[in-house]
Each structure stands twice: as structure tokens, then as C-alpha cells.
Design a protein around this nucleic acid. Structure first.
Length: 424
RNA sequence: AGAGAGGUGGCCGAGUGGUUUAAGGCGCACGCCUGGAAAGCGUGUUGGCGGCAACGCCUCGAGGGUUCGAAUCCCUUCCUCUCUGCCA
């Protein structure tokens, strides 16, 4: 969430930023934050004053009791009982104000970076780069949902039987392709200096709040009721939360983690056209990169992460483009997001395969993720993450783009991982 | 899952209702001393919030409660260890 100090000291920038996102009633909302914060301070000042008085009286009673001056002590006791009610009232006021303030802040998204253009939807995103030629396929080209049946490598019906729609079963060379991609992505990240982690794929409520999935996207996560745990929608959640409630030292930077996990998304209400086959699933595999950085370096790091992801796409020989998301399409918690899309030649569509974002202090504030700099003072770090990469749409485009009459040719870079070079 | 024991600052560790306003030690930082170092001595050392400041409030796993006053008593909850059970 945003810092109140950000809103107070940089009101105009916050306001303009929210307007870029088409956030309704931005000015009223920001002013309400400032009002609540002022009320919070006033109430605290009053509460502290009375609390101090009460503490002092209690200490006096302690002293008198020790000296055996029971009557004097009892006289003071009466005074303190009066104050007690006042403290309780002020305490309740304070808590109420704090809750209202926090709940209000939860509803306000991150302020977009200055390079982010105003816009309402995906149509307003800027294409900043396009690379690789689109393959030309013959008239017999098939979309991936046909190809997977033809070669019997991914089975949606079986998945539906044992679990439900959107939970495919990968079989034979399909399963091996998954495993190869995961290993390839992890090895690439290791070579880039990321440390591999294997986090739990269920997380508690605190972690959900830490990275901002809660309360914003409650309905999008599967919830294990009995134990109040959430299935992760992305490895961003457990990996970033590793650093929750921490004060790092500056030498710890840069923190670079990579992890492979399955991801689970309920995708409530988002089914329809364009989501056939692998385009949208309830369970999918993803390798995620996360960095925690010094605020001065986070945008440099964002560019590094973006070009790193582009490098993988080039190695896989997939045509791709990079978008800078507009205000309206940028995720709630992000200040700047690049989306990478690969071209899927049979569907003749661009498919999003990665999203690389800088959250600045938005997550760090909730996470209480700080570091101590040269001046020994603690300040919030910046957090970033990106998919590197999400598997299903990569698989879709590999299958579609590389189909030939003899079968589906595998990208060269994967052959050592696969142990075969064609699916036929 | 059952029984028992625990959770105190960067770390170890004392602490069963009132100078604990968290002892003592280790570590770390700074200063004195020294030719330099070690030792010794001194000072400082959780985090958050409020206040121009002096200073104040909160913080002993977390959340409630009892009390004029809680690290200490009560309730709830999370976690760790030991034993038993179950199990890849």
C-alpha cells in the first residue's frame, strides 16, 4: 500500500498517477487519507498524554504501597479509575481511525511510473519492441488444442475427470516438454545469478496481504478452509514474503531469487472466447524471478529483468513483442509493468507469457521489508518480479509455430533437456 | 493426532504483580588509554508511532482479558523442542 507520507509530500504526483489509472474520485480519496491521518495523530497525542499520566500515578501507587502508606495509595487509585475510562475511549477511537485508514489505503493502487501512459484497457498499451518473424504456416495448420490431441500429449478430458475443467494432464512427450522447459528456465536463471528456492505452494493470510493479493483478489485464490491457507496464484507470493518483516543490510543487495512452482487461479468469471486450450488454466507451471533492491537501482534492475526474459524468448526462437502497460492495465500493486507476448501462429494471436513489474515500496510497505543504509537508518526496499517464464502459452506457441507435416520440431536449445527433437 | 516443556533485545540468558523504567554476559559501534594492537576503562546498541524539541506512548511469539499497575496471572491462537502414535 501507499505510504501516507508519499501522499502528503507528493500529493499532485499521486493524484495525476491515479488519474492515469482512471481511479475514480482520486482527489477525494487522497484527501480522506490525509484527514484520517491527521485525526490519527491528534488522537494519539491525546491518548499518549493521558496514558503517561496514568503510568505515573501507577508508579506512585507502587511506591506508596511499598512504604505501607495504604490510604494514600487508595486515594490515588480513585483518580486512576476515572482516567481509565478516558484511556479506553481514546484507545477505541484510535484503533477505529487506524482501521479505517488502513482499509482506505488498501483500496488505492500503486502510483504509476512517469513513463506509464494514461489508458483504460489493454488496447492502450504501448508496443515498445517487436522481434522475430512470424512463421508462415500452410493451410493445414492446426491450433494447439488440435495438435495436443493429434499427438496425444496433453489431455483435458482426463484432467476434467479427475479434477475439473482447466486442469490438464500432460502425457508422454507433453510431460517431458514441461519438465524440459522448467529445467531450462531454472538453469538460465542460475546462470544469470539468481538463487533457486523451492517455497511452499500454500501460504497463510499474512503472506497474502504482504504481496497484495489480499484483500484485493480474494476470490481469485483457492482457499483451504480448514487450515485457512491459500494456494499460491504465483511464486511471487511465497518468495517475496520470505523477506517479510526483515531489516536487510545494504550489502545483502541485490537479492535475486528464482523458483519453479505450480500456480493456481480460480479465474472466476473470466472464461469465454479466446481462452481455449492452454490459453487459460486453473493450474499451470511457472518459473518466477524476484529481486529485492535498493530504491536507487530498481528501474535499472527492471530493465535487466525485462531483457533477461527477452533473451530466453530469443533462445526459444519465438517471435515476441514487449508492451509497456498503460495506467488502466497495470496491475494494482505495480508502478511499471512490461508484458512479453509471443506470437502463436495458428491462433494468429499474441499471447502474454511474462509480466515484469517494479512495485517500488508498495509491497515493501505492507511487508515491512526494509534495509539499513550507510546512515544506519532503516528505509523501505523496492521489490520486483517477473515470469521467466509461464509454461502453457510458451507450449502453445512452440506447438503451433513449429508444426510441420512430419511433426512438431523442438527448439534446438531444448533438445538436450528433452532427449528428442520432434513430437510425432 | 495425544502427553509434556518452552517462545524475553543482533545472540546467549535472568526474571512468579510495583526502582525491570528488562539484570548479567557475548557481539557490534564510538571514545579514552597505546608507537600500533590486545587487555582495561567509559559511552551507546529492538523496532514502530507522536512531538520543532525536551520528551512521551506502544513493543517480552500474536490477539484478547483481570488489575491502579502484567514479561510475570487467566483465555484464545501460532510456532519450537521431547516422548508416543501415524506416515512418504
Amino acid at each position: 500500500m501507499l505510504l501516507v507520507s508519499q501522499i502528503r509530500e507528493d500529493f499532485q504526483r499521486c493524484l495525476k498517477g491515479l488519474e492515469k489509472r482512471n481511479f475514480p474520485n482520486a482527489e477525494t480519496t487522497l484527501n480522506k487519507v490525509l484527514d484520517l491521518d491527521r485525526a490519527r495523530k491528534d488522537t494519539q497525542t491525546q491518548r499518549d498524554k493521558i496514558q503517561a499520566e496514568s503510568n505515573s500515578l501507577s508508579r506512585q501507587i507502587g511506591g506508596l504501597m511499598k512504604e505501607g502508606k495504604r490510604e494514600e495509595a487508595n486515594a490515588i487509585k480513585e483518580k486512576t479509575s476515572e482516567i481509565k475510562g478516558q484511556i479506553k475511549d481514546l484507545e477505541e477511537d484510535y484503533n477505529q481511525i487506524e482501521i479505517s485508514l488502513r482499509e482506505l489505503l488498501y483500496t488505492i493502487p500503486n502510483i504509476p511510473h512517469s513513463s506509464v501512459k494514461a489508458g483504460k484497457s489493454a488496447e492502450d498499451n504501448e508496443i515498445i519492441l517487436e522481434k522475430g518473424g512470424k512463421p508462415v504456416l500452410g493451410a493445414s495448420k492446426l491450433p494447439h488444442w488440435e495438435l495436443i490431441k493429434k499427438y496425444d500429449i496433453i489431455d483435458f478430458d482426463l484432467g476434467a475427470k479427475i479434477t475439473g475443467a482447466g486442469f490438464p494432464v500432460y502425457k508422454g512427450k507433453g510431460a517431458r516438454l514441461q519438465r524440459a522447459l522448467i529445467n531450462f528456465f531454472l538453469d538460465e536463471a542460475l546462470a544469470e545469478g539468481y538463487m533457486e528456492v523451492q517455497p511452499p505452494i500454500l501460504v497463510n493470510e499474512d503472506s497474502g496481504y504482504g504481496t497484495g493479493q489480499l484483500p484485493d483478489k480474494e476470490g481469485q485464490m483457492y482457499h483451504a478452509n480448514e487450515d485457512n491457507l491459500y494456494l499460491i496464484p504465483t511464486a511471487e507470493v511465497p518468495i517475496t514474503n520470505l523477506y517479510r518483516d526483515m531489516i536487510l543490510s545494504e550489502e545483502d543487495f541485490p537479492i535475486k531469487n528464482v523458483g519453479y512452482t505450480p500456480c493456481f487461479r480460480r479465474e472466476a468469471g473470466s472464461w469465454g472466447a479466446h481462452v481455449r486450450g492452454l490459453n487459460r488454466l486453473h493450474q499451470f507451471d511457472k518459473v518466477e524471478i524476484v529481486q529485492i533492491t535498493h530504491p536507487d537501482r530498481s528501474y535499472e534492475v527492471l530493465e535487466d529483468m525485462s531483457s533477461y526474459v527477452q533473451g530466453i524468448l530469443e533462445k526459444l526462437e519465438l517471435p515476441y513483442r514487449v508492451l509497456r502497460l498503460c495506467g488502466g492495465d497495470t496491475g494494482f500493486t505495480s508502478a511499471l509493468t512490461y508484458d512479453m507476448e509471443v506470437y502463436s501462429a495458428a491462433q494468429e494471436r499474441w499471447l502474454e507469457v511474462s509480466s515484469v513489474s517494479n512495485f517500488e515500496t508498495y509491497q515493501a510497505n505492507r511487508l515491512k521489508l526494509r534495509f539499513r543504509g550507510e546512515d544506519k537508518k532503516s528505509q523501505l526496499a523496492h521489490s520486483l518480479n517477473g515470469s521467466a517464464l509461464a509454461l502453457p502459452r510458451i507450449v502453445a506457441s512452440i506447438l503451433e509455430n513449429n508444426q510441420t507435416e512430419d511433426g512438431i520440431k523442438m527448439p534446438k536449445v531444448l533438445i538436450p533437456y528433452l532427449g528428442f527433437d520432434i513430437i510425432n
